[in-house]
């Protein structure tokens, strides 16, 4: 039983990462109706800069880099909208292109070396389970960001504008809400959240230039597993996938572990559970 508990706890720490990546994904899906495939690439860029510079300055510069990259995506979004392209798949494909470009830029600028920084060396022993503080830190950061994001969405004027733009863009426009500008903000938020996730991964396990798209996929799977209707479900989805992965790695065939996010995506899409209400006037 102790072993089972240990796997679950490890899974929760792992899932916090997925949950963190799921936050910008579900935010973009809820408010703009599209997927920003570059979220994992923002994480990669932040980690690359953070690993190079190091310390608090490195973290801040990493976040700034991720923010700049996401502003590129926001600009692409605005340009597409202005050009009259309202098809969300086009925006998603643009973000895919940006993700590939960021991966190439990281490879060209930093080479193929891995980005890893030493986190905290301390080990806490709780009820016989040895825990590095980095895990609880990741979980706490994820929960704090989730709380902040929920407060922003449901307790502020900006949140109301975001939700109004999502539910009825034309009506929101008529009510004086700058819909495109507000939605562009979402991409910038995605850059910040992705950047934070990247920095936490940098100090947890590390990553290399190939990580971008797989991180995006993990975040996407987490954001849809319990329905994509709000960020809290996305975070919870991340925790659930993390626990499933840890239990699978511990008890099952390890080869199954990597398939879990893809399996979740296929199952959710196959069963038609991808927040279909979003398109029928469902209020997020």
């Amino acid at each position: 039983m102790l072993l089972f508990t240990e796997y679950v706890i490890r899974g929760l720490f792992l899932g916090a990462m997925y949950g963190l990546l799921a936050l910008p994904m579900s935010l973009a899906f809820v408010t703009v109706g599209t997927i920003d495939f570059a979220v994992g690439a923002y994480a990669l860029l932040a980690a690359a800069i953070g690993a190079t510079v190091g310390g608090t300055l490195g973290a801040l510069l990493g976040l700034a880099g991720a923010l700049v990259a996401s502003l590129v995506m926001a600009a692409v979004f605005v340009l597409l909208k202005r050009a009259g392209h309202h098809d969300t798949i086009m925006i998603a494909l643009s973000s895919f292109g940006l993700a590939v470009a960021i991966g190439s830029i990281v490879l060209a600028s930093w080479g193929s070396t891995a980005f890893v920084r030493q986190g905290l060396d301390a080990v806490w022993t709780v009820a016989g389970i040895r825990i590095n503080p980095q895990g609880p830190i990741n979980l706490a950061v994820g929960l704090a960001l989730l709380a902040g994001l929920t407060a922003l969405l449901f307790g502020t004027g900006l949140g109301r504008m975001l939700r109004a733009s999502a539910v009825n863009a034309q009506g929101a426009e008529l009510a004086g809400i700058p819909v495109v500008a507000v939605q562009a903000l979402i991409f910038a938020a995605g850059g910040l959240l992705g950047g934070i996730a990247g920095l936490l991964i940098l100090y947890s396990s590390g990553l290399d230039f190939t990580a971008g798209l797989s991180l995006t996929l993990s975040g996407f799977a987490a954001s849809i597993v319990f329905g994509v209707s709000n960020p809290a479900r996305g975070f919870l989805g991340g925790l659930a996938i993390g626990v499933a992965e840890a239990l699978s790695a511990g008890y099952g065939s390890g080869a199954m572990t990597a398939l879990i996010p893809q399996f979740v995506v296929l199952l959710t899409l196959g069963l038609g559970m991808l927040g279909a209400g979003r398109y029928t006037g469902y209020r997020p």
């Binding site: 720490f13 792992l14 790695a249 511990g250 572990t257």
Partner: peptide
């Protein structure tokens, strides 16, 4: 015992425990 992991795994404690 053997424990695999994909290239981009972000946590490997479960494999280590196994």
């Amino acid at each position: 015992g053997s424990a695999p992991a994909p290239y981009t795994a972000t946590d490997l404690t479960a494999q280590a425990i196994k």
